[in-house]
């Protein structure tokens, strides 16, 4: 379970976002909806330990995360969280498999790579350079890298943001399928995809938008 309490985050443009307390239960999928700038991605980044909140706390599996060192947060992220970025965060000059094997730098077991690529329908692209793939294929590689380590939590920041609706819908279906039994939190603008998730959270209501500091 992920529990956030009294979270707030300040930004360099002298604005801040205050979050209502949230709870994400284990094994459920959540869709975060909301206008740009309402704090959806910031929440994901704070849960992932990439950003630190100014106030409040985040508990994951009963453990308080915000007070941990950056090194501990990085270690937790590499082992327990699969993060899918909107812009994929792949090395375009490297092959699909090398982009997955980058996790080996932290001794992550990537032996399930073929199986995951197969389930996503891109095993035949395994040795292709990422720069030669389509947007949908790149997104699948990003998903494969996120789930190959069998994380407990999957965070997806606008996983369909760069894809048309048909491909985006297919990607979301696959993401839901392979995330079964795990906690999935996905940020998206597209309400039509809400039917695939267990819960939909309107982030405009959670934060009330940005305020000046």
């Amino acid at each position: 379970m992920i529990k956030t309490t009294n979270l707030s985050k300040h930004f360099q443009n002298e604005t801040a976002i205050d979050y209502r307390d949230l709870v994400f239960e284990d094994g459920k999928s959540y869709m975060l909806l909301g206008a740009s700038g309402c704090g959806k991605s910031t929440l994901l980044n704070m849960i992932a330990g990439i950003l630190s909140p100014e106030t409040g706390s985040i508990e994951i599996g009963g453990e308080e995360m915000t007070s941990r060192s950056q090194k501990e947060k990085d270690k937790f992220r590499i082992n327990k969280i699969g993060y899918i970025f909107q812009d994929f965060k792949l090395i375009p000059e490297m092959t699909v498999i090398d982009n997955i094997n980058i996790l080996k730098l932290e001794k992550v077991d990537t032996s399930a790579a073929d199986e995951v690529l197969e389930s996503l329908g891109i095993l035949d692209k395994k040795n292709k350079k990422v720069k030669h793939l389509s947007g949908g294929e790149k997104q699948r590689v990003a998903i494969a890298r996120a789930i190959v380590k069998k994380p407990d939590i999957i965070l997806a920041d606008e996983p369909t943001g760069n894809l048309n609706f048909a491909i985006g819908e297919a990607v979301i279906k696959q993401l839901i399928e392979i995330s079964k039994g795990k906690t999935l939190i996905a940020v998206t603008h597209d309400e039509r995809l809400g039917k695939y998730f267990d819960c939909t959270i309107d982030m405009n209501e959670v934060t009330g938008g940005r305020r000046d500091v």
């Binding site: 090194k71 990085d74 270690k75 992220r77 590499i78 993060y83 792949l90 090395i91 730098l105 932290e106």
Partner: peptide, 19 residues
């Protein structure tokens, strides 16, 4: 950009430094 990417997916700075 590459270093930032590695950090975001959770690779520690010590490993990135070594690399």
């Amino acid at each position: 950009k590459e270093i930032s990417l590695m950090r975001l997916i959770g690779i520690g700075m010590s490993k990135i430094n070594l690399l």
